[in-house]
Design a binder for these strands. Structure first.
Length: 456
DNA sequence: TCCGCTTACACCTTTGAAAGGA
DNA sequence: ATCCTTTCAAAGGTGTAAGCGG
């Protein structure tokens, strides 16, 4: 798997002493992220991955799991995941393919999933694959569990952020890198549309073992009521088309042109860019062209509507590819910080997050831990000094509330800190022209993107 | 009528505490 | 007393089916 990496220096004045120093080599080129189960992801992606979203929250399957290398073993890192709309469209499943069904709905509150182990040493992240198993998706805009809120029938892809920071307080001064994987894009649905996806899920998800044909579920499955069978007959027409159509669907095949078997292995080298979208045949307004463009630029494939959030230029040395620079230059120079609603799984336990053995290992070989240990609870990041000019600071988000609230805010966030949808009910275009002033209201900033500009 | 969403359900895995043995 | 393994029940993750509502 070849991630699209997005290096985002985030210096805003002198870094705090707590921030781990690091050689530039580490910061800019050595960190690598590899998607685990890439084959499985690819299998889904070829068909068109769908992820169920429910009111109480639903895990992803396949779930996000990555290998990370190139971190400084003793430095502390925070891992984040957020979901980014792939484009500005809403989709519908029509017979055997996804079609554009109109303009995307206003985005729900942006939530960012903080890996429960965060912050942890580089050695911790690198010693084993990092799993985001407990990340949950929901369509409940009033969700109070910290799940990532998505719209059904919309496309998203996860972004992985590695932030070098001793703690959440120093994130603001930290360098972070963003990775995305083309195979991980998906359509959020409340019920599976493509029966092939259903079958893949059943075949690979252990929790769905009961639905496998060879399982003990035959009685259950054959126990359908006549009514349901009747009702199903309609959909089964479509389903039959899906399942019986063993020939590779051109809509998939086309999207994977140029993707041969060797590509799988090559993907482990995060170097080249390969575009393969299951949506090649759909007529997305922003659609394939836009996505191709993003990929070609090796940037986080942010929807066009996000562009105004980006900086028009990168103040320091420019690691960005030319295309990146040109795109950046095409956008407004207005700095539009957005503060994510940072969250973890509700059942997260900080003691679990910082496993004793891990902490012992890290503390024995690395700098002692003098950090708050319960930083991984449900968190809402308020905007602090968001007015920093883009050329100087990059206040992605700040843990510092306007009035320097105590750490308790981070660890014991009441449910009310999850903003109601009405706080955020603006669509992309309107967000794009969001004025550059700042509120204390977190919700005002709980929008995409998490990091407002990218440099490679 | 259509389509997306919600809910209840059965089936299954995972998890963690308790019990037992070395 | 400690550590390890096994057992078992509870918790929770699945897709399905049926019904609801816009």
């Amino acid at each position: 798997m070849q991630p699209i990496r997005d290096l985002k220096p985030n210096f805003s004045g002198p870094p705090p002493s707590s921030m781990a120093a690091a050689p530039d080599g580490y910061l800019q080129g050595n960190i690598r992220m590899t998607l685990k189960d890439a084959e499985l992801w690819k299998s889904f992606h070829e068909i068109g991955t769908e992820m169920i979203i429910t009111k109480p929250g639903r895990r992803m399957f396949p779930h996000c799991k990555v290998d990370i290398s190139g971190l400084i073993p003793c430095a502390k890192y925070i891992l984040l995941v957020d979901m980014v709309p792939e484009d500005g469209s809403r989709y519908k499943w029509n017979k055997d393919k996804w079609e554009v069904a109109g303009k995307a709905e206003p985005q729900p509150p942006c939530r960012t999933y903080l890996h429960p182990d965060s912050p942890a040493s580089g050695s911790h992240w690198m010693k084993q694959p990092v799993s985001f198993l407990k990340l949950k998706l929901t369509n409940n805009t009033l969700d109070q569990h910290g799940h990532i809120i998505l719209h059904s029938m919309h496309r998203y892809y996860p972004r992985f952020h590695i932030v070098q920071a001793d703690d959440l307080f120093s994130v603001r001064w930290s360098v972070f890198q963003t990775f995305t994987f083309a195979e991980t894009s998906f359509t959020a649905v409340t019920a599976y549309q493509n029966t092939r996806i259903t079958k893949l899920k059943i075949d690979h998800n252990p929790f769905a073992k009961g639905f496998r044909d060879e399982g003990t579920n035959k009685k259950r499955r054959s126990n359908k009521s006549p009514g349901s069978a009747e009702k199903k007959s309609k959909s089964s027409e479509v389903s039959a088309r899906d399942s019986e159509d063993d020939s590779p669907q051109d809509f998939c095949r086309q999207s994977f042109e140029g993707f041969d078997g060797d590509e799988v292995d090559k993907r482990k080298e995060p170097v080249k860019e390969k575009t393969y979208s299951p949506w090649g045949r759909t007529e997305s307004p922003n659609g394939t062209e836009a996505r191709d463009m993003y990929n070609a630029e090796q940037l986080v494939p942010t929807p066009a509507s996000y562009q105004p959030y980006r900086f028009n230029e990168y103040p320091g040395k420019s690691p960005s590819p030319p295309s990146s620079a040109s795109r950046s230059s095409a956008i407004s120079g207005r700095f539009e910080p957005r503060v994510p609603d940072l969250a973890t799984v509700p059942d997260h336990n900080s003691s679990k997050a910082t496993r004793p053995q891990d902490m012992a290992a890290s503390s024995s070989s690395c700098a002692p831990q003098n950090l708050p240990q319960d930083l991984t609870g449900v968190i809402n990041m308020s905007v602090g000094q968001t007015g920093k000019p883009s050329m100087i600071g990059h206040p992605i988000y700040s843990p510092y509330p306007p009035a320097e609230q105590p750490l308790g805010q981070w660890s014991n966030t009441p449910p009310t800190q999850y903003p109601a949808a009405h706080h955020l009910s603006t669509d992309y275009p309107s967000q794009a022209v969001h004025p550059g002033y700042h509120h204390n209201n977190v919700a005002e900033w709980s929008q995409y993107p998490l990091f407002s500009y990218s440099c490679w």
